[in-house]
Design a protein around this nucleic acid. Structure first.
Lengths: 194, 194
DNA sequence: TATATAAAATGACCACGGTCAATAAAAAAA
DNA sequence: TTTTTTTATTGACCGTGGTCATTTTATATA
């Protein structure tokens, strides 16, 4: 059984303040430019306090990015399932757009998309799971292959999304746009014509 | 036209020494543990010298990892094309094994797998290209789908390899081994049975 | 209310990647 | 050879993430 140790009001206020400042700074200059020193300066606390609230800088980043992803996934899941591949691409566009808004963000998402340990599944790993679940739920709504199960199909969609996003940052492959590439992959993956 | 500016012997010696020391240190304690300060200390040069030879620490890392990948890809390409999916998995095993030998290595490879700019295609991006080309060449040798072209198939193989490797680091998905997962993906990708 | 105990905050300090004006060494020109 | 110019090296210094013994504040106890 877990004992919920008492949490002081002070703790909640400090943490909220830190998150609030961090969000503001990100809005002002993006994720990559965020500096822990500036967060604590604006929040009016000592640097050590920051690390008493967050394991490291990435942990804060994970929270900020995770909640953004979460909001976008909620939006994507709010409407009825898209009926075809173009619909899937369109529906996921905001999610992918955010994931690639900054090189830094994309790298961080990739790095934390897998949970490091069962006991500490971070916000980004959670979002990745939600992504897969969401897409799995869309599979029955379209005219796609039925020879493999929907979970596997969804994992494939995710893999191709990552591939497409990665190539978007690659100067060698910028002839094709992200949407085109993603749609081509999905057509081959979801509707093979053998 | 390019002018090949004269290079002093000294330069080559210093650079070789730095690379040599770095390789030794990696062999001793792995990639993640490598410290620039230790490289320069053992090489007997100043820290600034290091950065006169390599843009940053990652650039050195790219060289070290890139040449390893290159060697492994050469090996994988030396034999005749594998005839089936199990053969492909087996043949790529050493490559994937190296890519996942350290979390740090995997992350770095992902980060540099796309060339940042056309003019500076790093060793890792080169290796990724070689990987795709190699696999493309294997496609005609097996009984796989023919409805999409081999380049696309190879890109898919790569995407699924990355997906499988990523999940290997994820505590949530460690029930299935990398090889099993990869083979499942490839079966669904290369031999759809609609 | 005074005292003991636990939780939170502090800031000096460290590790380590990276910079740059100054210097030394090599190559080219006189 | 001596002088000039180019190239390579140096190491003090900086930015920034992260640590930890100490101090402050809040809560429980007498």
């Amino acid at each position: 059984m877990l004992m919920s140790k008492p949490v002081q009001q002070r703790t909640l206020r400090t943490r909220a303040k830190l998150l609030d400042v961090a969000e503001t700074l990100v809005r002002e200059a993006g994720y990559e430019a965020l500096r822990v020193e500036e967060v604590v300066a604006r929040a009016g606390v000592a640097k050590g306090t920051f690390f008493a609230h967050f394991r490291d800088k990435d942990a804060l980043m994970e929270i900020l990015i995770g909640q953004e992803l979460d909001a976008l996934l909620t939006q994507a899941g709010a409407l009825p399932a898209p009926a075809d591949i173009a619909g899937i691409c369109a529906r996921l566009l905001p999610v992918h757009g955010f994931m690639t808004c900054e090189r830094y963000v994309f790298d961080l998402i990739l790095r934390y998309s897998g949970a490091a340990a069962v006991t500490e599944i971070g916000p980004i790993a959670m979002s990745f799971d939600r992504y897969a679940t969401l897409v799995t739920g869309w599979m029955p709504a379209g005219d796609y292959r039925r020879d493999v199960d929907d979970t596997l199909l969804a994992e494939g969609v995710q893999a191709f999304a990552v591939q497409s996003m990665g190539l978007q940052f690659c100067a060698l492959h910028q002839a094709q746009s992200f949407q085109d590439r993603f749609e081509t992959y999905l057509a081959a993956w979801l509707t093979p014509a053998v």
